[in-house]
Design a protein around this nucleic acid. Sequence first.
DNA 1: CTGGCGCGTTAGGAAGGCGTCAAGATGGCC
DNA 2: GGCCATCTTGACGCCTTCCTAACGCGCCAG
Lengths: 224, 224
Amino acid sequence: MSRVLIVEDDRQLLRALSINLRARQYDVDAAPDGTSALAVAGRRPPDLVILDLGLPDMTGVDVVHGLRGWCTAPIIVLSARDTQGDKVAALDAGADDYVTKPFGMDELLARIRAALRRASPGDSAPVIRTDAFTIDLATKRVTNPDGDVRLTPTEWHVLEILVRHPGKLIPQKQLLQEVWGPGYESETNYLRVYMAQLRRKLEPDPSRPRHLLTEPGMGYRFTT
Amino acid sequence: MSRVLIVEDDRQLLRALSINLRARQYDVDAAPDGTSALAVAGRRPPDLVILDLGLPDMTGVDVVHGLRGWCTAPIIVLSARDTQGDKVAALDAGADDYVTKPFGMDELLARIRAALRRASPGDSAPVIRTDAFTIDLATKRVTNPDGDVRLTPTEWHVLEILVRHPGKLIPQKQLLQEVWGPGYESETNYLRVYMAQLRRKLEPDPSRPRHLLTEPGMGYRFTT
DNA sequence: CTGGCGCGTTAGGAAGGCGTCAAGATGGCC
DNA sequence: GGCCATCTTGACGCCTTCCTAACGCGCCAG
């Protein structure tokens, strides 16, 4: 989980940002002005900083300088001002990106992802663990205590759909449609065969599955 | 001096960018479409890419993917479209920044400086070792206990994509598209031939590969 | 009690992917 | 023009994967 420091004096915007970031599993710190921003950053070093330029106590460029002295985390500047001079000044001071208000939340989130991706290459690992096996969605790898588990493409496809929604019940129709395509919604046979194969490869006791569960008459469910 | 690749089909804009960048001592390459962009990038690896989304032959997102397969240089996207969806798609594909046309030259130059500043210090040690061979991505050299290994350009291209993502499963489609270009996604023959050649040159026991692995029906994987 | 239904399990044949080899193309270089 | 390295292309055998059908079991309703 990445820690994000939000430096913003507008309470309402701060609230909106915090909620959105927390919903995406970021660890959020907040500071209402430049002085406390530097203090918080020192106490809890952030992985990324979102910095509003219109602060009450000091200019945004000063904050950037203050941070850049010791901190290499990416800085994304927010500002209502849209003049080139402001942007150039902030970027050359050490900021990494400059977003003009009003901005779309989706865009800001994408820029945050891009900045974090560049800063820490390959640490964001969507990996799911159970006590019996581990699934790495990025590298498409499944391991159990004995080592790597070889899955066929169809087996992987079924497993991936289940694992992407942990704990959620997936209807048979949805699985069949996503893996075999529309028109196969009634071939529940296929599902039984492949669920059996997955359980044989992954469950410690395939006849008593603990992670790949059947909900009779409804569908299947993956549980950690 | 940093090398910048400009991918832009608008002659006039290309000219303006080139002049401005050359005046700032950048080494400028240019490509008018996605296909030649990938070709030029392969021949003369850029330190930064400026990519217009409105290309005649392929979508900007495809170009980003094609570059990201083996190239870690920052990518700044230019686009006339200002919708959030476009920005999010480009950034999540691997772009580092998104600038909407019309833009100010000073701002773009500042964003270029910011991108290069972030990219340069963490130049990351581009050398991968296994117990059977060593790969130096910077000098494009491969050595095994017997000395240097001679690879053909295509062999190298395939190997580089795999090695840039250690442990990750690369789908055949992606390899084919990035090495042979779009339109070759179904020529899985090529892959089999070249994987065999790479294994014969690199693996101690080519018939039982330990580093260049096949995941049947899905793709290939490089493991240290 | 009995038949139907859904689920798990197994096995075998068909289809297609994979590794391998070798024979043309292709293009650069002398 | 001829030589060489490299890239394409086709053919073959082997092996994996997928589909399909059959059977057994447990559950529930009739």
